[in-house]
């Protein structure tokens, strides 16, 4: 080690005493985790309101004997399209079986897309994508662990044009959610045949291509 290297090491070590104390660190982390859980819980309430309002009608409409598929207007993206690699340095969650990419969107996905789109104001032009995945894969993408039983799920992503307020959230929560990305997670085998789910409003995007084939929804949702 030459003289300057020694100086660098000594300089760094000599200044470590200026570093902040860790006295309040554990409490701050506890608080941060609690706030994160409250945000998720609050968002879930709002989402359930949206999902119940929207998907209840959709499920009834598709009913027994319904195709459960979208109309011909949907554009499904992926067949022969770009396959996006997961970014380096990240462990991809376990990939679920993939639905053939040419399949149109299920009714429940279109209904949730409508509900989400109507839930944000100002009502922006939005791009909606969705994937068929598993609850476990979604939680892994969020960096969390699924405590409940795993099962198939749809994740619907609304890409808003800018940071936007969730109007539906205001009716349920004492605070407004502002997001550029809104996600509805539909538990396909949930208690109400697809009505159960989770809602996440985020200022950053989740890489849905890591948990399934990303399908673009057309404008007829």
């Amino acid at each position: 080690m030459d003289g300057l290297e020694t100086l660098v090491r000594e300089s760094l070590t000599a200044h470590e005493e200026r570093a902040p104390e860790a006295d309040g660190l554990l409490g701050a982390v506890r608080g941060g985790v609690a706030r994160r859980r409250r945000r998720r819980a609050g968002a879930l309430c709002a989402a359930l309101a949206v999902l119940v309002a929207v998907t209840g009608g959709v499920v009834a409409a598709s009913g027994p004997g319904g195709s459960g598929r979208g109309g011909p207007g949907q554009v499904t993206f992926g067949q022969g399209g770009p396959e996006i690699d997961a970014p380096p340095g990240h462990d991809p969650p376990s990939l679920p079986p993939r639905r053939p990419p040419a399949d149109p969107a299920p009714e429940v996905v279109r209904g949730v897309a409508t509900g989400l789109s109507n839930g944000f104001a100002p009502h922006p032009p939005a791009t909606v994508v969705w994937v068929e995945t598993t609850l476990k894969a979604w939680y892994a993408l969020e960096g969390e662990t699924l405590d409940a039983q795993d099962g198939p799920a749809y994740v619907v992503e609304l890409r808003l044009s800018a940071l936007t307020d969730c109007t539906s959230c205001k009716g349920v929560n004492p605070y407004a959610l502002t997001a550029q990305f809104a996600y509805a997670v539909i538990d396909i085998n949930g208690d109400k045949g697809g009505n159960g789910g989770e809602f996440v409003a985020s200022k950053t995007e989740y890489q849905l291509d890591r948990i399934g084939t990303v399908h673009f929804l057309g404008d007829d949702y």
């Binding site: 570093a19 902040p20 660190l25 701050a28 982390v29 941060g32 985790v33 994160r36 969020e142 960096g143 969390e144 662990t145």
Partner: peptide, 15 residues
């Protein structure tokens, strides 16, 4: 520094 470490630990707790 406190903000960075708190945020990193909160993220780490998630996984």
């Amino acid at each position: 520094a406190e903000d960075l470490v708190q945020e990193a630990l909160i993220r780490a707790y998630g996984r």
